[in-house]
């Protein structure tokens, strides 16, 4: 395959061809996520030490930034 098949319109060169579904870039309207003004749903998830984090309880009334990314390692 040529290098062009791995470089997308943003100039990003990745390990998979740009036609791979995980590399397809959404077009048109793009507004994922709950809306501003909505209450953030509560949840429990393990952290990197295996401890269970109860989101709203553990932030204890503090403001919070909740980041989503596909993985810490790839």
């Amino acid at each position: 395959m040529s290098e062009e098949q791995f470089t997308d319109e943003y100039g990003f060169t990745g390990p998979l061809p740009v036609t791979s579904t995980q590399r397809v870039i959404p077009t048109g309207e793009f507004h994922p996520g709950l809306s501003i003004g909505e209450r953030a749903p509560d949840f429990e998830l393990p952290n990197h030490r295996g401890e269970t984090i109860s989101f709203h309880a553990d932030r204890a009334g503090a403001r919070a930034a909740l980041l989503f990314y596909r993985s810490a390692v790839w």
């Binding site: 003004g37 209450r39 709203h56 919070a64 909740l66 596909r70």
Partner: peptide
Amino acid sequence: IPFPGFFLLNEDGTI
């Protein structure tokens, strides 16, 4: 996988 990004929440948990 998610789309990458972030939400900001105020003290009472509102986005």
